[in-house]
C-alpha cells in the first residue's frame, strides 16, 4: 500500500514543479469542461509504481502505475505520457494517456482526444473527446434533469420512410 503523503516526500521535486504558478500546464486544462486543481499531487514521468495508491488529494499521473488507485472524493488525471494498469476510484477521472483498468467515477469520466482507455466505466457522466479511444463497458444511471447544451431529444420521432438525407458538405 502506497500512502500518497509519504510518497510525496520522495517526489518533492515533481510536486514543486506543479506548484509553481508560472507553469502553464494546468492553467491550460481549465479551458476544458473539467478543471484540474493546480495543487494536485504528481507522479512524475520517470516514476514506476506497483501497488495500491490511496490518499486525500487530487493526483496527476505522468509515469507508470500498476495496481489500484483509490482517491474517493478527489480527481485523478492520467497525463499524455502516463501508462496505467489499475482500477481507479475517484470523483473525476480524466484520461489523456493510456489506461487499462476499470474506472469508477463518482462525478464523471473524461477520455480526452489523446486518451486510450480499456476497461469498464461506472459513472453518471462520460465524455469521449474527438479521437478518443475506448473499449469496454459504460454503466450509467439516468441524469436527474438535463444539463445545459444537452441536445438529446426526449423522444426521437422519425416517420419518413426510405428518405435518406445527404448532409451538405
Amino acid at each position: 500500500m502506497i500512502d500518497m503523503k509519504q510518497f510525496k516526500d520522495n517526489v518533492s521535486s515533481k510536486i514543486k514543479a506543479h506548484h509553481e504558478p508560472e507553469k502553464p500546464e494546468f492553467h491550460e486544462k481549465e479551458t476544458h469542461a473539467v478543471s484540474v486543481k493546480t495543487n494536485a499531487m504528481a507522479i512524475g514521468a520517470s516514476i514506476h509504481i506497483k501497488g495500491d495508491v490511496t490518499g486525500n488529494e487530487d493526483l496527476v499521473i505522468q509515469g507508470h502505475v500498476e495496481g489500484t488507485i483509490n482517491l474517493k472524493g478527489h480527481n485523478v488525471t492520467i497525463s499524455n505520457s502516463a501508462k496505467v494498469k489499475a482500477n481507479i476510484e475517484a470523483n473525476q477521472i480524466i484520461v489523456e494517456g493510456e489506461l487499462t483498468g476499470d474506472m469508477n467515477g463518482d462525478e464523471k469520466v473524461v477520455i480526452r482526444a489523446t486518451g486510450h482507455a480499456y476497461g469498464n466505466i461506472v459513472a453518471p457522466r462520460v465524455t469521449l473527446e474527438d479521437g478518443a479511444m475506448f473499449k469496454g463497458s459504460i454503466e450509467m444511471e439516468p441524469r436527474q434533469g438535463r444539463v445545459a447544451g444537452d441536445t438529446r431529444p426526449g423522444n426521437i420521432t422519425q416517420n419518413k420512410e426510405s428518405t435518406d438525407l445527404k448532409v451538405a458538405p
Partner: peptide, 21 residues
C-alpha cells in the same frame, strides 16, 4: 467504436453499454 452520440443517447436510461469496438 465508442462514440459520444451513443453515450449521450443512453445517458437518459439506466443502462450498461458494452462498446467492444
Amino acid at each position: 467504436p465508442a462514440s459520444q452520440g451513443v453515450i449521450d443517447l443512453f445517458s437518459g436510461y439506466s443502462c450498461k453499454l458494452y462498446l467492444p469496438g
